[in-house]
Simulated scan of single mutants.
Amino acid sequence: MDWRLKRNCSMAPRQLLAFYLSLCILSLGIATMFWFQGARMIMTFAWIELFAVGLALWVVARHATDSESIVLRNDRLTVEVANGQQVERVEFQPAWVRVEPAHGDQSLIELSGQGRRIAVGRFVRPELRSQLAQELRHALRRWQQGAARPSPV
């Protein structure tokens, strides 16, 4: 069983780059026209503006591919949380995993067991997190009953 949870992004990092480059061309083109008209300060402000917008878009693009992956296979429950350049990976034995909200019904879902814990559900609407927790509990129960285990070949 797999759960793949991703950030809802309207633009991929490449699309953000294309948007930014078109913005640079337009803004510097207008600033260049003012430069030749004698308004030299416009170019300085255009560069400052483009630097600020570029920095903001860079921050957005770094987190555009954030995701959470929960995989229940064989005798392992593997959880990976990617946040920017950091990837946190935790493996559990399914029989020892507890699934519970971290602080309340609509808070993140905390998976814990064997001295490890990890929170998931950042990319699920708060009102749907309890449904995700129920799905995880159900899958773990099925695994414990042997229904989710593959037959030996």
Rank of each mutant, 00 (worst) to 15 (best):
M1D: 01
M1T: 06
D2A: 08
W3R: 03
L5I: 07
R7C: 00
N8T: 09
C9V: 11
S10P: 09
S10M: 10
A12G: 06
A12W: 01
P13L: 08
L16N: 09
L17S: 15
A18M: 06
S22D: 12
S22V: 09
L23K: 05
L23C: 00
I25T: 10
L28M: 15
A31C: 11
T32D: 08
F34E: 12
F34Y: 14
F34L: 10
W35A: 15
Q37I: 12
G38Q: 04
M41Q: 15
I42L: 09
I42V: 15
I42R: 02
T44I: 15
F45E: 11
A46I: 11
A46V: 13
A46N: 03
W47H: 15
I48G: 00
E49V: 07
A52I: 04
V53W: 05
V53C: 02
G54S: 04
L55C: 05
A56D: 00
L57M: 04
L57Q: 05
W58Y: 05
W58R: 15
V60I: 07
A61Y: 05
A61P: 10
R62N: 12
R62A: 05
T65N: 12
T65E: 07
D66Y: 05
S67M: 02
S67W: 00
E68L: 01
S69E: 08
I70V: 04
I70L: 02
V71A: 07
V71P: 01
D75R: 15
D75L: 04
A82L: 04
Q85F: 08
E88W: 06
R89T: 15
R89H: 11
R89W: 14
R89V: 12
V90K: 04
E91D: 02
P94K: 10
W96F: 06
W96I: 13
R98K: 14
R98Y: 12
E100F: 05
H103R: 06
D105K: 14
D105P: 12
L108N: 07
L108K: 01
G113Y: 01
R116P: 06
R117G: 07
I118N: 04
A119Q: 12
A119E: 13
G121H: 08
R122M: 05
V124C: 04
V124W: 03
P126A: 11
P126R: 08
R129F: 01
S130A: 10
S130R: 11
A133I: 10
A133S: 11
L136I: 14
H138G: 00
H138T: 09
A139M: 09
L140Q: 07
R142N: 03
R142G: 03
W143M: 10
W143A: 13
Q145R: 11
G146A: 13
A148Q: 07
A148T: 08
S151P: 05
P152I: 00
